[in-house]
Design a protein around this nucleic acid. Structure first.
Lengths: 212, 212
DNA sequence: CATTGACTCGAATAGCCGTTCTACTCTTGA
DNA sequence: TCAAGAGTAGAACGGCTATTCGAGTCAATG
């Protein structure tokens, strides 16, 4: 839906989102101007009208702080689905978000929808949302999103428990029907990458219409 | 922490919370006055200073819409814990909240912390938060909070799947080690009450410090 | 070169906003 | 009865706010 933005307007929108997240209210035009080093309030108004025209915000005329975001500032994007052994399917337009509250840093988190039963014994089910915190490292026992790089680009991705063992890394599913993956240390270092670890899961029951 | 409020100020705070929820920004003093049928802006200021003194809001001097809530408007209260067959333990001070986003009506929802393994086969674990929508009725197969009334007051409470059968109600745990509870229809009508049904669960992994 | 579109400034304006002050009415309790 | 406290109204003030206007810069396009 929204047209892409230029660098400046993208930073301006980012400031507005962060301000709302921090202060609990939208900024005034003057506060935006100050933060963006814009001298004229008319100038701020101009860029805001651009943001509005392109569908990123809605303004309420004449109201102080009359800016509304068209997306919820506390939502984190649902970037795709993950199924054991398949590449992550990235939604081309990650429009959907789920809201998880202040405790999760939205800058460094995202969500995936779980497909399949590979983590069922850890009680992560088909259809659950897993909230992932982006990080390159993890500790033994963490549930992580690990991807196998094929010639430098992401190939297969998988949701598994991580265990660093003497000579190898073990990626352990939570399903007795599935075998763990064993990866020699050097191959791990060369060909694998951790995208993040699971910090929460959210499950919705029934058609409660909880799309964000 | 917060002192109790009089009826008027309680309604005023409620208006502010709902306004923020609806508009994404706090109301101005004049908007509050209009909604509360207060003629004078000084009068509104007076009540706001009361709310601030009692710890319900924080005001930023001179800033338009400079009202912040000390509790998150999207949080729903974590009212206690529920374990199969035990009464719900109600927290005397339900200070904790979890944030679940716009889709859940905070007026008619609350959360409980699950204790024990009675719903483990439905992949609801010890420590999970279950989000409950308050309702007196439910459909077959719903996971509900059902309480056994002892002389009109809540006694045992339980988290189970509800099935209405010919002559009886069956409350079905999701754990092979536990037996379902069968309740004759007339006893059900007389002595039992549904407090709500599970619409979501939230699970936090590790010490990610996600208290609200 | 002329034109267009995107972007920038400074100034002005009309109205909105939080705050303060004075004055008044109740109710409660000493 | 008197005093104190909570609640109400009205008016006024200084600053804040969104918006508009006129004028200008700069880069790309024809």
């Amino acid at each position: 839906m929204p047209e892409p933005l230029g660098e400046f307007q993208r930073r301006m929108l980012e400031f507005i989102v962060n301000y709302i997240r921090r202060e609990g209210m939208p900024p005034t035009n003057r506060e935006i101007g100050k933060a963006m080093k814009i001298a004229s309030t008319g100038h701020v108004d101009y860029h805001l009208s651009m943001l509005e025209k392109r569908g990123y915000i809605i303004r309420e005329a004449k109201k102080s702080r009359g800016i509304k975001l068209t997306r919820h500032p506390w939502g984190i994007p649902v970037e795709g689905t993950i199924a054991a052994g398949e590449p992550i399917e990235i939604f081309s337009e990650p429009d959907q978000t789920i809201e998880v509250g202040h405790g999760v840093d939205p800058e460094n988190s995202f969500a995936l929808i779980v497909r399949g039963q590979s983590m069922i014994e850890d009680h992560i089910c088909d259809g659950d949302y897993v909230v992932i915190k982006r990080q390159r490292t993890c500790e033994n026992g963490d549930i992580v999103v690990a991807v196998h790089l094929v010639e430098g680009t992401p190939g297969k991705a998988t949701l598994k428990r991580f265990f660093l063992e003497k000579e190898q890394v073990r990626l352990q599913p939570a399903n007795a029907e599935l075998e763990p993956i064993y990866i020699p240390r050097d191959e791990w270092d060369r060909e694998w990458e951790i995208q993040g670890k699971v910090i929460a899961i959210v499950r919705h029951y029934g058609g409660s219409g909880r799309a964000a």
